[in-house]
Each structure stands twice: as C-alpha cells, then as structure tokens.
C-alpha cells in the first residue's frame, strides 16, 4: 500500500530527529544539572570550575535549541520556513 510506505518513510525521519531533540535535549539538561550538583564526596564545597563550565554550556545549548524551536513556531505562523544553510538558520517563504 503506497500511502503506508510514504507514511512510514515520513514517520521514520520524524522519529530520528525527534529522538535527537526530544530525548537528547532533556538528557543534556540533566547533564547540566548533574555537573552543577556534583560535589566531591563528603564536602560542602560548590562544584569545581570545570564542572560549572560544563553545566552552563549544557544549559546554553538547550536554550539555544529552544529559541530555534520558537523561531520555527513564529516562522510557520508567518508562512515562512526555517532553512539551515551552512549551519545558520534563515527564514524562507514557504
């Protein structure tokens, strides 16, 4: 059945990208929280500078992708498409 084949093809791509974003970003966020929360065993000292850099980098990446998500919503509302050429997002008419 042709429709089923087309459908599975589309669903497969949706699944892969969604896994990357929908599971990857929460995992990255969790990594950020863990980096900031981890303290050396038995001490009250705050996380080491390296861990803090890692933690805030994780959060920054998550926030950046969420902003792209908002851009996607706004773009589709204006009848635009978000295209990625050379890694940079740009708006194109649909």
């Amino acid at each position: 059945m042709h429709t089923l084949a087309l459908e599975l093809q589309a669903i497969w791509r949706i699944l892969l990208i969604s896994l990357l974003l929908g599971a990857g970003l929460p995992a990255l966020f969790a990594l950020g929280i863990r980096a900031l929360a981890l303290t050396p065993e038995g001490s009250d000292s705050p996380a080491s500078p390296g861990a803090r850099v890692l933690g805030y980098t994780c959060f920054a990446v998550v926030v950046l992708v969420v902003l792209l998500g908002i851009a996607l919503i706004v773009a589709s509302g204006f009848g635009q498409k978000l295209e990625f050429s050379g890694g940079l997002p740009s708006f194109q008419p649909k």
Binding site: L21, G22, A30
Partner: peptide, 22 residues
C-alpha cells in the same frame, strides 16, 4: 524529571512533524 522528558518529547515531535508536513 519525567515531566520534563515527556514535554520535551511532545514539543520535539509536534514541531518536527508539523515542520515536515505530517
């Protein structure tokens, strides 16, 4: 943590699928 993962998944699947036209 489950709530975050669930809504993160929802947001990703909704946006990706509507972006891809399905």
């Amino acid at each position: 943590p489950q709530g975050m993962s669930a809504e993160g998944s929802s947001a990703a699947v909704i946006l990706v699928s509507s972006h891809m036209g399905l």
